[in-house]
């Protein structure tokens, strides 16, 4: 195009597009700030000395003093609570995947009477406020000696995580062509061998992601944890119970201790976010 042509061309559409682009970029920037700034503020508090946390006005730049965190981790019961949280989440993860993956496999590979009923049962669990289960289970657990135990709480958390595990693994297995398994059968595999040698290696990253997801569900759960544990508090239950009595810097350090693993978890499973929630459409 000649120079004259450029000058003669009406400039309006270009300007509109450029200003539209500017609005778009600003919007994205604001949304990113909206998500990230609050996390930054919590970390800034956690990384400041106790005195600074209650000082006024607060600086948004942390002093990178670890006194708050040291105080938090040195606080009586915190390390136990942390360890309890990890144990409960791990058991939850194992139960949810151990029970959920076979069910997901069955749903993806077989047609059989009762399939819809099972799917309905699984989907129904999502329409109910599940943490409420903790109330009757508290009684049941006292009767069976499961009250205030890691296993008892993990079983409740597994009820939260199991439907997700079923639906996620269902979508994972559905994404693996049946022909691969059939090929394995014709090449000398039993059904189980085909699953171990072909399906599991292909589904492994996704199964790992859904396991992490189950872990996060348990790690973050507050209500059931607070209802079902007394001595063996998880971190969330511990923080909730001490909200009224604990100093601010303890709360914020505790908040940071909850958030940081969550950030890492989400980062680890980011590729599978859709496998986890996209299936919600089916």
């Amino acid at each position: 195009m000649t120079e004259a042509g450029t000058q003669d061309a009406p400039p309006a559409p270009d300007r509109v597009r450029r200003s539209g682009r500017w609005v778009f970029v600003t919007g994205v920037g604001l949304l990113v700030a909206w998500v990230l700034v609050p996390i930054w503020l919590l970390l800034a508090n956690a990384l400041s000395a106790p005195a600074e946390v209650t000082a006024f006005p607060r600086s948004i730049i942390p002093s990178f003093d670890t006194a708050s965190l040291e105080f938090f981790f040195g606080f009586r019961g915190v390390l136990d609570a942390l360890w309890n949280s990890i144990q409960v989440a791990s058991v939850t993860m194992i139960v949810a995947i151990g029970l959920g993956a076979p069910a997901g496999y069955a749903l993806s590979r077989f047609d059989f009477p009762g399939k819809e009923a099972f799917r309905f049962l699984v989907i129904m669990t999502r329409a109910f406020p599940l943490p409420l289960l903790a109330l009757p289970l508290a009684v049941m657990f006292i009767r069976t000696g499961l009250d205030d135990t890691i296993l008892g709480l993990a079983l409740v958390h597994a009820t939260l995580a199991l439907p997700f595990a079923v639906l996620i693994t269902f979508s994972l297995f559905s994404g693996i062509p049946v022909e691969l398994e059939e090929a394995a059968w014709t090449l000398g595999c039993t059904r189980l061998q085909a699953v171990i040698k072909v399906v599991l290696p292909l589904a492994a990253p996704g199964i790992a992601a859904s396991a992490v997801f189950a872990f996060v569900i348990s790690w973050n759960e507050v209500f059931a944890a607070a209802v079902l544990t007394i001595e063996n508090r998880t971190l969330t239950a511990f923080l909730l119970q001490s909200l009224d009595v604990s100093p601010l810097h303890l709360k914020f350090a505790g908040g940071a201790a909850l958030v940081i693993p969550a950030l890492l978890f989400i980062f680890a499973v980011r590729k599978y976010l859709f496998a986890m929630w996209g299936i919600a459409n089916r």
Binding site: E179, L180, E182, A183, W185, T186, L187, G188, L202
Partner: peptide, 20 residues
Amino acid sequence: LPPRERGIAMVFQNYAVFPH
């Protein structure tokens, strides 16, 4: 008999080459 005991081999329409 299951497929593995029939002494057959099969080529599938979409090849079914194991991706891993």
